[in-house]
Amino acid sequence: MNTVITASGLNKRYKNTHALDQVSFQIESGRIVGLIGPNGAGKTTALKAILGLTDFDGQLNVLGLDPRTQRNQLMEQVCFIADVAVLPRWIRVREAVDFVANVHPRFDRVKCETFLARTKLQPEQRVKQMSKGMIVQLHLALVMAIDARLLVLDEPTLGLDILYRKQFYQSLLEDYFDENKTIIITTHQVEEIEHILTDLMFIRDGKIVLDADMDAIGERFAEVMVSADKAASARQMNPLDERQVFGKSIFLFDGADRAVLEGMGEVRRPSISDLFVATMKGTYA
């Protein structure tokens, strides 16, 4: 497996916030990485650094290129969807396809038209006449027809209804993703991407606070539902988080002994959103 992104010691300061604070990570080919963090944690800055859209200090290598100086070559291999409103409002479906087909060396027009045929989009339709969901369908059709090695999605489904959101991720998985491609996603709708991620990164105040693949997370973190009489002993084991449901306590543990936990109650793999809430406790306080 080859490495798609290597970052070490990334730093980026805005006036009085540290958007990136000594960030280091590696992303391998064929992974779907969720980059999750609260508002203002530095997610978008990290993505912008990868895409060469912002300046920063530190070492960053994307597909063997430096995004600061080799952006144009990099963009042949990298695609991104920033959020729903980025297609120009005046452009027509036909024009968008024509344009990308003629400026992008790795664009497959037939593929794009196949994707578009599955939607209600008409060639003469302008972006300003489309709903948000349709704009994303167009953008996704354009991007999926590009044979890129890295796809960056920054809040791609923001403001879409659940039908469009499901369809979006389903198309990505069925028609796009393979072992030669890598996808990085940031989103606040964590539950929806939980089952498609292979890797998870939590970012908080410009620092990576968790970076693991999903199997490792299942082994490392555990959630136990404990009845009231055993709650005190569970509390002694230093849980990350505790919450009450129907008179029982649910504890979230990081690296606790499985056997002990199973003695206390039903052990489950925690959902990413519960893990996220526990990890980010006190962020806005």
């Binding site: 895409l51 409103a85 980025v86 297609l87 120009p88």
Partner: peptide
């Protein structure tokens, strides 16, 4: 205009200097 409506991000996602 393209910065105002954020479509600059779309143009910059293409391999054009």
């Amino acid at each position: 205009d393209d910065r105002r409506d954020h479509s600059v991000l779309f143009w910059k996602s293409l391999p054009i200097s």
